[in-house]
Design a protein around this nucleic acid. Sequence first.
DNA 1: GAGATGACGGGCT
DNA 2: AAGCCCGCCATCT
Length: 108
Amino acid sequence: MTHFQTQVLQRVRTIPSGRVVSYGQIAASIGTPRAARQVGWIMRSLGKTSDMPWWRVINNQGKISIKGNIEHDARSQKKLLEAEGVVVADDFTLDIEKYRYQFEEKES
DNA sequence: GAGATGACGGGCT
DNA sequence: AAGCCCGCCATCT
């Protein structure tokens, strides 16, 4: 478990139900605004072995861009979000500005 | 240590 | 609006 990974997971864990954040937001909140890709990379490695609300993390275009190689695919993420009251279109897009959650705390 | 990878982001066509 | 391209940066091989 690297420090970077710890920081990311720590933020993901604070996302409230029914809200979403972009990979870039998480990267920025831990002090590395340009490491959005790495945030996604960490999500990929999470798999099912986590109780982390990974499905509340989407890209800045308000779209779910998961590849689907893991057990989780875009469809399951869509269901999870809808279960929390988030409206997701058939093309896996949603009104991110409406559900976007702003991190308040900074690093720890 | 060098090159390749990718659940991203932003800019340009 | 949709697609293509380039830059980022922690990991992996």
